[in-house]
Design a binder for these strands. Structure first.
Lengths: 159, 159
DNA sequence: AACAACGTTAACGCGCACGTCAATGTTTGT
DNA sequence: ACAAACATTGACGTGCGCGTTAACGTTGTT
């Protein structure tokens, strides 16, 4: 009844996949590609995903779907996540304060990098958005002119 | 010296590709897939891209790189662009005012759809951004505590 | 002990979005 | 008239991100 890995909150691949809205194949694939560190296993060899694993999986999904990064790119970017999860998991007792501070600084830097990327992308999106909004304005303008001159030739427009 | 298609502002595939930061293969591929309507040709068969074609190509690039849509999705979305370019190119004289207004309405609707998609994506990005910013805040907090307690065990943090 | 439900690895397959020849034709400068 | 630069249409190749199938082992329930 009691497993070695404190069964609470650990999911095996079926539920993990479902909760993450991914397939089992995808989770195994991410592991193959080194995006996910090999999860703990049950005695029989079944994968057990920790809550931290689940967080990480979610982050991967966001980076991929939202920002459209390739798995290779994401692997690079996950440096920040790695450090954060290490910190959350509690410090190694063999590390002294200076070492810890260095890690935190690294995590901070990597996160700032990601923020910069996001800001860049949001800027471009905002400008695309503005362009489209302006376009709608022009459509509305045209429609108004149709409404005003019901039966005449409503100006063959240019710009 | 003078070509049939008023050579001004028309680019052949080499320059077109370079200006769009795409390859010639990609332009031909987009044409194959119906994302680009067959451009005009020189007498020898060389493709000539109009400024409108170039606009369209740029829009495709934006939708793909910025928003991460597949070419199939983009093809659907380009309905709006098609209508807009038809309008810019001047109305067909065989269409009456009602028909024109309908077209404009269609273009408007399609553009609004795209706006909605962008807004959706921007919202999600903003929330990811907030999450990362908060994370940086926590890093800074941690670093402050390291600075305050120079040599003691600086709290094995939890959340 | 049996059986369904769930998991494992390994291997092949597939659609997308092009890359990369190869063989050939066109345009342009001299 | 000829070469160098540029283009054309196939056709096959490629990397990514998984899907799918096969053969087999584990877990939980009855």
């Amino acid at each position: 009844m009691a497993e070695s890995v404190s069964t609470e909150r650990f999911l095996q691949i079926g539920e993990a996949a479902e909760r993450a809205s991914l397939t089992q194949r995808t989770l195994r694939y991410y592991e193959e590609k080194g995006l996910l560190s090999p999860p703990t296993r049950m005695d029989g060899g079944f994968r057990l995903y920790s809550p931290e694993d689940m967080e990480r999986i979610d982050r991967i999904r966001q980076l991929k779907e939202l920002l459209g990064f390739s798995l290779a790119e994401i692997k690079e970017m996950m440096e920040a996540e790695d450090i954060r999860l290490q910190i959350k998991a509690g410090w190694r007792k063999d590390a002294d304060a200076d070492e810890k501070a260095d890690k935190v600084r690294l995590g901070r830097e990597a996160t700032l990098q990601q923020l910069a990327l996001i800001d860049q992308k949001m800027e471009k999106m905002a400008s695309l958005r503005a362009e489209l909004a302006e376009r709608v304005r022009k459509y509305d303008e045209l429609l108004l002119r149709f409404a005003e001159l019901p039966e005449s030739e409503a100006a063959t427009s240019q710009s």
